[in-house]
């Protein structure tokens, strides 16, 4: 019989929110992330274990499928939503200090770009991964990012863009953050981006999908 952590991982991966949720169709009537996380905590399993060996494993699996074009944004959103349902149970433990927040992550879609689906997905996955997220919204310029970095010392920053012409703004924002807070970890993401572009503008990491963003930051802030 699968362990409860494995069940949490599977339900997260498949986007099974709770027992009443009709999605996915082949898991009707089964408990979802909501019930399983509550049960795991009442069984005395450490909240960090629930997060790292349950929820994050599931998100990791769906993230890999997304990277391979086996699933697309709707499936990823369902998984992120299921993860959020689990995080509601974990939040009191983070707030009380029983489980530790991993850090603060400032994210925004760069100036000249109004596309926010990808940015919102990353936000959800980062929150699900135990990060405090400061969302600057869309069309965010240098000043907005610098103000957020100043307000949140030690934060990591994520820049998102969809358009090839607005990703050019990323370099200016990276440079401005480097000038002000050189040690800040900066991730970039969005459909037109590549590792080469990330290297060219001096960002720390290119996150092809939300899960890679979470994995990179989680490993960088251990």
């Amino acid at each position: 019989m699968a362990s409860i952590l494995e069940l949490i991982a599977t339900c997260t991966e498949r986007g099974k929110l709770n027992k009443d949720a009709p999605y996915p169709p082949d898991m009707r009537e089964l408990n979802g992330v909501d019930e399983l996380v509550a049960q795991a905590l009442s069984d005395g399993i450490d909240p960090d274990e629930v997060l790292n060996q349950g929820l994050m494993v599931g998100m990791g699996r769906i993230g890999e499928q997304f990277s391979r074009n086996e699933v697309f944004v709707p499936e990823l959103l369902m998984a992120a939503r299921a993860m959020s349902a689990g995080m509601k149970h974990l939040k009191p433990h983070f707030d009380s200090g029983a489980a530790k927040r991993k850090g603060t992550f400032v994210i925004g879609t760069v100036a000249g770009d109004l596309h926010d689906i990808g940015k919102n997905l990353v936000r959800m996955v980062m929150e699900g991964g135990g990060w405090e997220v400061v969302d600057l919204g869309v069309d965010a310029g240098v000043d907005k990012f610098l103000a957020a970095v100043e307000l949140n010392p030690g934060c990591a920053v994520g820049l998102s863009a969809l358009l090839t012409t607005t990703m050019g703004h990323m370099g200016d924002i990276v440079q401005a953050i480097r000038d002000k807070a050189p040690d800040t970890k900066i991730l970039v993401g969005g459909a037109p981006l590549t590792q080469e572009f990330c290297d060219m503008i001096g960002a720390d990491s290119y996150a092809r999908d939300p899960q890679l963003a979470l994995e990179y930051l989680s490993s960088s802030f251990v």
């Binding site: 697309f72 944004v73 596309h115 689906i117 990808g118 997905l121 969809l162 358009l163 090839t164 990703m167 969005g190 459909a191 037109p192 981006l193 590549t194 572009f197």
Partner: peptide
């Protein structure tokens, strides 16, 4: 030849 463009990697993120 802009291979970075999302239309070449369409996902509408």
């Amino acid at each position: 030849l802009e291979t970075h463009c999302y239309r070449h990697n369409i996902r509408h993120m």
